[in-house]
Design a protein around this nucleic acid. Structure first.
Lengths: 343, 343
DNA sequence: CGAACACAGTTAAACGTTCTGCCAGGATCG
DNA sequence: CGATCCTGGCAGAACGTTTAACTGTGTTCG
């Protein structure tokens, strides 16, 4: 591996000059520049990023720690982040906390050890563990994505989950449904909690109150939703509509419906928040609120890079995006029969 | 940021001793070790990876360059790779070539500049561009994943695509289908080419010959398959079964069927290769060949790490995995009506 | 009993950059 | 014409590790 010294020797200049040519950091006369360039390509020289990082104190690495790499939502996040990060001249290091707080702790250690320039974190559990992140947020600029941790002093980009729950539920209410059930994620996550809260608010605003047995929460996964839906819909006292808190879970719920010989939307209407790629092929198409994932990620990266390169000391910035309702065919007006069942 | 020198001073030992404690690279007496440990946690010291990389010539970074991050297949690859890489003590840097050869070239440059220890590459186009990779494979150990480049001297982990095409097609042939169409990916990719070749071989072995108008290829994407399917099935001369070369494309084909008011499997049987997560909710369940993605990725990482840490000079190793057929309900026996149509 | 040796640590030289401070020499100006 | 100021380029000191070479004590053994 040729070093900057080899290049300098070959071009008969100093290493400082080579550095200046490589980085364009100072004026170098045309002839010297040409000699240096020639030497560089002759030797196939490439600067050592390790040495460069050591000297500059920058690695040009941004870490992205998502909560569940198997979840299509986070795949979209990864995809968008890769592009955004590249556009800013960084590279993306991926971590999967798999919804496990201990794993997250190890990831933070690792990110720190790698001395990444910044980190996008989808926080998993345990607000107390972020105290430390906040303390040395200066050292390792960190942005919370998608989920919030109460009382934090970190940058964040989130979606208005309350509004997502409200919008989806209002749509169902507008169709005449009153017995609406919900399958949501773990309630210690703001995403799950707030979507549920939004739903409850919407219902109460219309004087409806969901039956406790119609409210389930579980892992943000297809199989969790499947079994929740089977339980809830298997009995006699079933809701006429379902609000499901995530795309993967919506698929699970639909699978449960199919297995129970229930039709969607004739027997049960389903609305959800969030989607998954390729879901367009699924009939009926899901009525759902969608996250502007790409915009959210772009904004997150922009904020983080700004924090890294400019404003270490500024107060934290918290950006909230709005979900939008996408209407499919998975919801039908409540039938007389369904309404009669109202407890 | 405290350095090893600060720790050494605080513990009243030399930096070499601190290094020995941190790396466990030499015996240090219990009392000194304790002093060092205490100093480390008191100062909250973490070794600088930049300095370490510079000295050791290793970054503990493995690059993964996939062909299309928006494709669920590669999401599974990323997910498995993250876990495997972590188990070996490395971190994963993600790149998306988006099926663009120029992007791939830039990625290779970037990976080289980052001095990653190794690279898993899903090659995109243009075999000639890999000559260089082969030349300095010693410098940047590289493993080709999923797709092959002819005549290469690099490690590789692939799937027997020929067999995948054959198995899926044989299943359709066994059901009595003779007019089988295919929607496949770009033919310059071995994945697409070989799946098609396997299909052709299976058909010819039974004396069937697909009609040219029933063979389409396009991007490995949902929308490409959708329009190909619409074209192929919209006309009068339609096949009774379809072999679709990838999970996303299978979804696209099914969407086209739905939009054409064709039923699957009653009107058209569909078999595919590869799947996508959550597809279990789709009815009918897809009959398909599946890749053992996790095993493939684990093997790839194992080979790459071995190459990095041990056997730079050994001849290339090429591992081929076998796909397995998973039967769903998307294929039905050919009907008399369908058979009568045989040209 | 002295040579050889193991042992536990230390010193200091890399690793390949970047960048500050410096120098020589030519232009500018009073 | 000498003092001053640019200007292009260079020498060399960091950056924070790792590790080879070394040092000074015991310990062992012929």
């Amino acid at each position: 591996m040729p070093t900057i010294r080899d290049v300098a020797k070959a071009a008969q200049v100093s290493t400082a000059t080579v550095s200046a040519v490589v980085n364009g950091s100072a004026y170098v006369s045309p002839e010297l520049k040409a000699r240096v360039m020639a030497a560089i390509s002759a030797l196939d020289y490439a600067p050592s990023s390790a040495a460069r990082s050591l000297k500059r104190g920058r690695t040009q690495l941004i870490a992205l720690a998502v909560a569940d790499l198997a979840n299509p939502f986070f795949n979209r996040v990864v995809c968008a982040a890769e592009a955004a990060v590249r556009a800013w001249g960084y590279s993306l290091v991926i971590f999967n906390s798999d919804e496990k707080p201990e794993a997250e702790k190890r990831i933070v250690e690792r990110v720190r050890a790698l001395s990444c320039d910044g980190m996008i974190l989808v926080p998993v559990g345990d607000p107390a563990s972020y105290a430390r992140l906040q303390r040395d947020g200066r050292r390792l600029p960190t942005l919370l994505f998608g989920r919030l941790v109460e009382d934090d002093a970190l940058d964040s980009v989130t979606i208005d989950n309350h509004s997502a729950g409200r919008q989806a539920t209002n749509y169902l209410l507008d169709l005449g449904h009153r017995r609406i059930g919900s399958i949501t994620g773990p309630l210690h996550l703001t995403t799950a909690k707030e979507r549920l809260a939004g739903m409850m608010e919407a219902m109460r605003a219309r004087g409806a109150e969901p039956s406790p047995s119609h409210l389930r929460s579980g892992e943000f996964r297809e199989d969790a939703a499947y079994s929740a839906a089977r339980q809830m819909l298997g009995g006699g006292d079933r809701p006429s509509a379902l609000y499901v808190a995530n795309g993967l879970m919506a698929l699970g719920a639909m699978r449960a419906l199919a297995d129970l010989n229930l039709r969607c939307p004739e027997d049960i209407s389903i609305a959800s928040t969030d989607t998954i790629p390729g879901i367009g092929a699924l009939r009926p198409r899901l009525t759902r609120t969608e996250h502007p994932v790409a915009d959210m990620v772009n904004e997150a990266i922009r904020l983080l890079v700004d924090r890294i390169e400019r404003s270490r000391a500024l107060p934290p910035r918290n950006v909230v995006f709005q979900p939008s309702l996408v209407v499919g065919e998975s919801c039908a007006p409540a039938t007389q029969h369904q309404l009669r069942n109202v407890g």
